[in-house]
Amino acid sequence: MAHTEASVPTKKRILQTCVRLFLMQGYQKTTMLQILEGSQVSNSSFQNIFRAKDGVLAELVDFMFAYQFGTARDTTSNLPPVYVYAAETAIQLTLTELNENLREIYTVSYTKPLILDSIVRQTAQELQTIFSPYLPGLTYTDFYHLDIGTSGVMRSYMLHPCDEDFPLEKKLRDFLTINLRAYNVPPAEVEKAIAFVENLDIRKVARQVMEKLLRDLQMRYDFTLPEEPHLQSAK
């Protein structure tokens, strides 16, 4: 039996509408009026669940970051943990060159204090696992503080699109050099991790990740995109 809009739980209707609109037209262009009309909820009902549009973004980003780490592990199985970090961050940066709406979702998330705190708390655990051999004695809190800085580097590189003077390969090399050095990875290992990423077909990997991510988001939140979002060419 088909579900009517009214039979779908309110939170799910809001998520369906917001995630679909964020992916189709971008976070900033999605208005509260569109959200309320699309999900058929009142403003008070929306605020009781999410308080603001940022609340929906936070839930979406939590899923996306967990998804990325899983993908990176698949790409770098049985390889040094530093390679996991290099692959995960390279994929994330490349995704933002393929789709402007994904770029906006990521960069806005790094700008919102509460969402950034959630991102950093989640990634700090991964960073401690990966980099504690290079920074013995540092606690989870120490890695949390370090990640405040390295996530700022990530946001800055995301905001600056690639062009002829700043191709993707240079962006990834510069980013990885800065952040791996921040975690005290020896120069020789930094170069090996960068070489690993450079030997990947990172554009192909990122496209595959994006296509699967979009499919999984549609399944998770039970909506259908009218057409595949435009894939840009990562320069």
Rank of each mutant, 00 (worst) to 15 (best):
S39K: 00
T129W: 15
G55V: 03
L98D: 05
P161N: 07
L98K: 01
I178F: 13
M64W: 09
V41T: 06
T141K: 11
R103N: 09
E126D: 14
S132F: 09
R155S: 13
E104F: 03
D165M: 11
A2C: 09
F22M: 05
S156A: 15
E198P: 01
L114V: 11
L95T: 11
D201V: 02
L102P: 00
Q16S: 11
I115V: 11
K204V: 14
V108E: 14
G55Y: 00
N199T: 07
I178W: 10
T224P: 02
K112S: 14
T4V: 05
R73D: 11
D216P: 01
H3Q: 15
E189L: 15
Y221E: 07
D216Y: 00
T94Y: 00
A90N: 07
T224N: 10
F22G: 08
L213W: 06
A52F: 02
K170D: 13
Y134L: 07
V84M: 11
V209G: 03
S44G: 12
N184C: 13
D201S: 05
F223I: 00
L135Q: 13
S233T: 15
Y221Q: 07
F131H: 04
M154P: 00
T4F: 01
E5H: 12
Q68K: 10
D62K: 12
F131P: 01
R155V: 11
P9N: 08
M1V: 11
D201Y: 00
S45C: 08
T224K: 14
S132L: 13
E97A: 06
S233Y: 09
D174K: 10
T31K: 02
L98Q: 03
V209P: 00
L127V: 07
M64D: 11
Y27C: 06
G26T: 05
G70V: 04
D54P: 02
I119S: 06
V41M: 01
F69E: 12
Y183T: 04
G55F: 00
P133V: 02
D222A: 14
E5V: 15
Y144E: 12
E97Y: 06
A193T: 00
P136H: 08
I91S: 02
L79G: 08
H160P: 07
Y106K: 12
L23H: 03
F196C: 05
I14E: 05
L217E: 01
L146W: 12
M64Y: 07
S132Y: 05
L15I: 03
R207K: 11
Y144N: 05
F175N: 07
H3T: 12
V56D: 04
R220D: 02
I105M: 08
I148V: 13
E211M: 14
P167H: 02
R220L: 10
K29V: 06
Q47E: 14
V82L: 10
F65M: 14
A188W: 04
L33K: 14
K170M: 12
L217K: 03
P81M: 12
L36W: 00
P81G: 09
G55N: 01
Q28I: 08
D117G: 10
S44K: 11
V61F: 09
S118C: 07
R51A: 12
M210I: 10
P80S: 07
Y144A: 10
Q34T: 03
R13I: 06
E37D: 15
K170G: 05
G38S: 03
F131C: 04
M210Q: 15
A86G: 05
T10R: 05
G70C: 09
K11S: 13
P81T: 04
R20N: 10
K11V: 08
L21P: 01
E191K: 09
D54V: 05
V205D: 06
T30M: 04
